[in-house]
């Protein structure tokens, strides 16, 4: 286990203020660590990594890492990521978004990026809440959960991000909780080295805005909850009572080429005088 922290420190921007801006017990830092470790493990040069983030707590991740970083407008990270990847397919493009970012305001962009199968890794940090604005319910807030805009319990049903990505045609769909950081690392590495559109949903606790309103006493309680309820899909299938459990692991693994590869092939074929796309 040696040098994990040293590796992370190497990739941080040293002129930024530390510790991270996140609240105590926030899982975003673990995802940030996982992202850095995955890039390092895959030996991708820093110059070739682009992190495009949206707005919100997750958007702050971009500023800390010493890659090419873009802090886009709210919900639009995937649109910029699409433009960057299509313009320069050599780059490893990672769109870091929150649940509100990717599935409320940016829901349309998400399903279309997945359908288009553009070679971008979408890393969605799902904390079930709008954290930065102070704890309003989001499109992933569970039914019945409390937030500042659902003070008597959420009446709307929530999105299952994995189902959304699968139904939209994503090439790879993965989910893991931050409590299982090693497994998260493995999935993120897999997603980053695969073609096409890949979703990695990281379940990350927000104690400050979600936990305190939903009967969690400490940040540790939230991690214990993830430890118990985020179970590998194989185990999940065998559970008799699935209530409250969240399946994790690999949900979709297709090998279709990304849009940028298809586009380049079409261009080559046109230039060779053979006509349009295959």
């Amino acid at each position: 286990m040696a040098n994990v922290t040293q590796v992370i420190h190497k990739y941080l921007r040293h002129n930024k203020k530390f510790p991270l801006v996140f609240c105590p017990g926030c899982g975003h830092g673990i995802v940030l660590g996982s992202l850095v470790r995955s890039v390092d493990a895959l030996n991708i040069p820093q110059d070739k990594v682009v992190v495009v983030a949206g707005i919100g707590c997750s958007g702050r991740i971009a500023a800390y890492v010493d890659f090419n970083t873009v802090h886009a407008t709210h919900g639009r990270a995937l649109t910029l990521a699409t433009g960057i990847k299509m313009s320069n397919p050599e780059l490893t493009v990672i769109a870091v978004m929150g649940d509100g970012d990717a599935f409320s305001i940016g829901g349309n962009h998400f399903i279309h990026a997945a359908r288009r199968n553009v070679g971008v890794t979408a890393l969605v940090l799902n904390n079930f809440i709008y954290g930065m604005t102070g704890g309003q319910c989001s499109s992933t807030t569970p039914f019945g959960a409390y937030s500042h805009t659902s003070p008597f319990g959420q009446l709307e049903k929530s999105f299952d991000i994995v189902d959304m990505a699968r139904a939209s045609g994503a090439n790879g769909v993965f989910r893991e909780s931050v409590f299982h950081a090693k497994r998260l690392d493995a999935l993120l590495q897999k997603a980053l080295s695969r073609p096409g559109f890949n979703l990695v949903e990281a379940l990350t606790p927000c104690f400050t805005q979600y936990g305190r309103n939903n009967k969690f006493k400490t940040p540790v309680d939230m991690f214990s909850w993830l430890k118990k309820y985020a179970v590998p899909i194989e185990k999940y299938e065998k559970l008799e009572n699935k209530d409250g459990y969240i399946p994790t692991g690999v949900f979709v693994e297709k090998e279709e080429p990304g849009l940028e590869a298809r586009y380049a092939a079409m261009r080559d074929s046109l230039r060779a005088g053979k006509g349009g796309a295959a």
Partner: peptide
């Protein structure tokens, strides 16, 4: 026992486990 849990799960990169 050098399991590395703390190092991987510290959200603030504040723990280092070395030989």
């Amino acid at each position: 026992v050098n399991c590395g849990f703390c190092e991987l799960h510290c959200p603030d990169f504040a723990i280092s486990v070395e030989p």
